[in-house]
């Protein structure tokens, strides 16, 4: 057996099973990240409540999902819950696991983005008579969003890599599809190289897209910077 067989490599590169796995990886990443953004934002908003139990919930939520490995969460959802009478399909367990495990990271991004909006913006809103919830929705949140978008882009890459873990509960995404191919051909090097190339391509494509969006809309992201107040004149008398 040769060390490297190009024909195997090209065979694996366009193998229908690999392409199906690739597609699964892509949609699973997008869907679970989108869901994590919804859940994470909700959790971040809860954390802003002055109500003490809301604080405990937030701290506990973040600590729990950060402290437990995603692998364990997935196996728990898929294999341990049935013992409690809750039966999830592979896809359900994968979506729930990936969403919940990612949500605290989103929550932390949203939370720090909200507190990064200058207090003066709250005050300006209050001074006009804007109600607190409206101020959050119409004044603070749109500005926080602009701050949160760049770090959120990095979460995409993390989530992309995390999808490979759902292979353990037998969801056939890119990695498991690759593994299946290896079981038949015994050509590990070519197959894993193919998988690696696809992961790299997806990450590169995303990074490029993100750079493009940020460059095109650079002013949009820079928008939240405080007005360059020329305080010097006021301080002269001191």
């Amino acid at each position: 057996m040769a060390i490297w067989d190009w024909s195997v490599f090209f065979h694996d590169l366009v193998h229908p099973a690999i392409l199906r796995g690739l597609w699964t990886t892509v949609w699973l990443t997008f869907v679970t990240l989108a869901l994590a953004i919804v859940v994470g934002t909700a959790v971040a908003l809860i954390s802003r409540s002055r109500f003490a139990p809301a604080q405990w919930f937030y701290q506990g939520y973040v600590a729990f999902f950060r402290a437990t490995p995603l692998l364990v969460q997935l196996v728990f959802l898929y294999s341990a819950l049935p013992q409690m009478g809750i039966r999830l399909s592979v896809v359900e367990a994968a979506i729930i696991g990936l969403t919940l495990s990612e949500s605290p990271y989103v929550a932390e991004i949203v939370r720090s983005a909200i507190s990064a909006v200058p207090v003066a913006q709250w005050e300006a809103a209050r001074a006009i008579g804007i109600r607190p919830l409206t101020a959050m929705r119409a004044i603070i949140f749109p500005q926080a969003l602009r701050i949160a978008v760049p770090p959120m882009g990095n979460e995409f890459v993390r989530q992309l890599k995390n999808t490979s873990l759902v292979s353990v509960i037998s969801m056939t995404e890119l990695f498991r599809a690759t593994d299946n191919l290896i079981q038949g051909s015994f050509r590990v090097l070519e197959a894993l190289t193919v998988a690696t190339i696809y992961y790299l391509l997806l990450t590169a494509a995303w990074t490029l897209l993100q750079q493009l969006v940020e460059r095109r809309n650079g002013h949009w992201f820079a928008d939240t910077s405080a007005p360059k107040a020329k305080v010097a004149a006021a301080k002269v008398e001191a």
Binding site: A120, A125, A127, I139, D223, A226, P227
Partner: peptide
Amino acid sequence: VGMVFQSFNLFPH
């Protein structure tokens, strides 16, 4: 009660 601040505090978005 209208208020105008030293640093303007317009909504940047």
